[in-house]
Amino acid sequence: MTDTAIPTRTAPRINLRDAGTFFGLVLIFAVFAVLNPVFLTAPNLINILQQSSINACIALGMTFVIISGGIDLSVGPTAAVSAIVGATLMIAGVPITLAVAGAIATGMACGLFNGALVAIAGLQPFIVTLGALSLYRALALIFTGGNPIFGIPPEFRSAINGLVLGVPVPVIIVAIIAAILWVVLNRSPLGEYILAVGGNPEAARIAGVPVARTKIIVYVLSGGLAAVAALILTGRLGAADPTMGNLWELDAIAAAAIGGASLMGGKGSVVGTLMGAVILGGLRNGLTLMNVQAFYQLLATGIIILVAMLIDRATRGRA
């Protein structure tokens, strides 16, 4: 997944931080390959990508928000609300493409609400999205009475669970999104604006960057991607659960941070975040293969995050 996500256009120079994340990825995979012969087989690797795709999708949106100097804690409940809107529309007989569009629009609307509170009302992103986390979860629970929505049309389920050239559809969806986002971050004016706003919002404003608009866009993007992740999960489970996405924000932040995003803003990488998501996914997969208890998986995840941050700190050069 990571490789297919990188357009082959030559970057001006190699991103050392991404090289470091890649090295960590290789190292962890090498260890599991030695410990368990099944790990490095093609079906299992595809399995890892499949398992990582939902977190990768959320984490890509999170990366953009983090680069802009914010945070989006509300991605899980945003996903739940979007899934419920999508599922309700599908069951009501709305064409699937329209239902999908409705779900994504719902996610984007959640993002717009967050973005407006951050960029226009000037509230702190952590608090805004913390409030939104409760708010959107409550909406999902109230609307459904707390019960999952079953009866997702089989066409939608088979579309999500299908394979294209042996690659699961969710992996392909996320790869395409990542490719587009890579171009947006590294090659578009919006990418420059996001990096500038996260790096120094006041200087960016004085230089004529549309700061409020840029901030709103990243939250809308994050909300939209949460909806995409929610649709993938809905397709796989065959149901839209109002409790969907519990703690998704933490996995997404972890993937972004492992991939080099700075919570201070101004720094982050699409490729790095993808690798971060695959590292987390691979870790879980490898430990499960080795029949390690879930408690220890959590332990390993925590250690990986902290070690990644320590290496990040230690290898960041002068200047």
Binding site: P189, E192, Y193, L195, A196, G199, N200, E202, A203, A204, I206, A207, G208, V209, G266, K267
Partner: peptide
């Protein structure tokens, strides 16, 4: 430092900010 530059970005990006178009 506070109002002028975006420290971590290249010089070229700092120059282009007002006239991305």
């Amino acid at each position: 430092k506070k109002d002028g530059i975006v420290r971590a970005r290249p010089v070229s990006s700092n120059i282009a900010l007002p006239c991305m178009g």
